[in-house]
Amino acid sequence: MSTIERSSRQSPQLRPPKATLSARKRFSEENVAKVLFVVPAAVFLLLFFGYPVVKNITMSMQEYTTRTFFTGEAPWVGFQNYVAVFGSNLFVPALANTALFTIGSIAGQFVIGLALASFFRRRFPLSNFLRSMLLLPWLLPLIVGSATWRSILDQDSGILNRFLEALGLIQEPIPWLTSPAVALTAVIIVNIWVGIPFNVTILYGGLQDIPEELYEAAALDGATGWKAFRHITWPSLRPVVSVVLVLGVVYTIKVLDIILGLTNGGPANATQTLAVRSYQKSFIDFDFGVGAAYSNILIVISLLFALIYLRANRRAVDE
């Protein structure tokens, strides 16, 4: 604070004898201003990103339970919480489910999203209206969406099974949420539905940026349809695609509300993911230390993808 006061007091005097002012001093004044510009952002980052991350790391090495909240005591246990996580019989299934869930969701969202975005590139009556309707899953609170899906996917009376039966596609109702073999697929399907708007929006924006002339020139050379997509659309869209995929991974890996709303990790732990484990350990079992260990593992995985993205991006810039 004192620096600010001094500089604001002194600054008005600086003006008339400009020539006599030492270069060094002016330099430092400028530096103060520079630093001050950075301060709000730095304080924000430290407060809302630095502190939680550090707290999460220390918490994962403490026995942090209901007791801690009243007494403030959280005994240091070193890596014991991580041992508990890796030693749990649910860790490997949860890790595998997280991978399947993320890969399945991203693949579905991206392919459908790209197809829809390409489709909406053509102008046709009501195309703008329909495109905005696509955003609907995004606007709906996830907990409402998953409650609705839960009734849609009900084995006996759900509309999806009734519909498929009426079409003659299935004879027996599919146990969407009640069979451990199917539940993860059902959860992925719902998450694809949730993720499509995001993919369409970003990819559509990317498609809009591709100049029309490229297609016209290519058409003259005989490249239309699939060829145009392969040689013009796809290469031009690459930077956007990498953003969509990396953000998609980071968003999907931590999905919690949809799974809690649909299956709560069941049936028989078939839809347990690392995020669900972290939530249940922290907020159901109130074993915050172990919960923090799970979420740190998630953070490391997300960080890996972010690094891959940054590297890929740098290479693209270098090229």
């Binding site: 604070m1 604001s8 600054s11 003006r15 301060v39």
Partner: peptide, 19 residues
């Protein structure tokens, strides 16, 4: 220019306590 800089610094000084 200096005038502008002064304004900026004053503005920063005004904001900082809020934080």
């Amino acid at each position: 220019n200096n005038k502008r800089r002064v304004t900026v610094i004053l503005a920063m000084a005004a904001i900082a306590p809020l934080t």
